[in-house]
Amino acid sequence: MIELSGIERIYEVGASPVRALKGVNLTIHRGDYVSIMGPSGSGKSTLLHILGCLDRPTAGSYRLDGRETADLPEVELSRVRGHQIGFVFQFFHLVPRLTASRNIELPMVFAGVPVDERRERAGRALEVVGLTARADHRPDQLSGGEQQRVAIARAIVMDPSVLLADEPTGNLDSRSGGEIVQLIEGMNARGLTLIVVTHDPVIGGRARRWVRLADGNVVEDKVPDESPARPVGPLKAS
């Protein structure tokens, strides 16, 4: 359960402050599937960073699973990022010198999970994304789609409550992009809250709830009438 109220984010850039978010109110329920859309500069990345506790709002309140995060100390925020939130990035962000399975283990390393348990959980996560055979490959030996699947395995391995995906298909061809979307939608079907930030209407349109940002404000927040059809197969290239 995510509750944002009156979220503002002001950057000090040069002499004049830039107001990236101007009082955003948003409540997202557990297990929801939300797309956050908007042109570049609309504040959607800033919102994503605040949702992911990578950035703090200048003003306003952000309650995650009932706990106020805005005034949590840095160490606690790290814990929240490690345990409650999974990130999927446009550029995958895998550590190039580590194998797929070691990359997936990283969050558990920082959380202090013992080695044996780490190996086992990484193995299971690889199975979920269907890459068991690639466990010992380094990122440069994997295709873009495979790299993103490793990143997804890494995002879910700590069993978070929220999966934040930032343009998850932005760097992939439409075929692998479609596979990735299906993969994360499958996770949402099993109860994981899924928030996808994108400027691609095809991807964003698949969500159960559409939030549209413009100029730092929520300008549209709707649940489309018709339950969107979920065509299995390639999506239109973005």
Partner: peptide
């Protein structure tokens, strides 16, 4: 830098 950002996103603390 990117790797450091990633580590933080994955839950690494300042101290770690």
């Amino acid at each position: 830098g990117r790797e450091i950002g990633l580590l933080k996103a994955l839950g690494a603390t300042h101290r770690q």
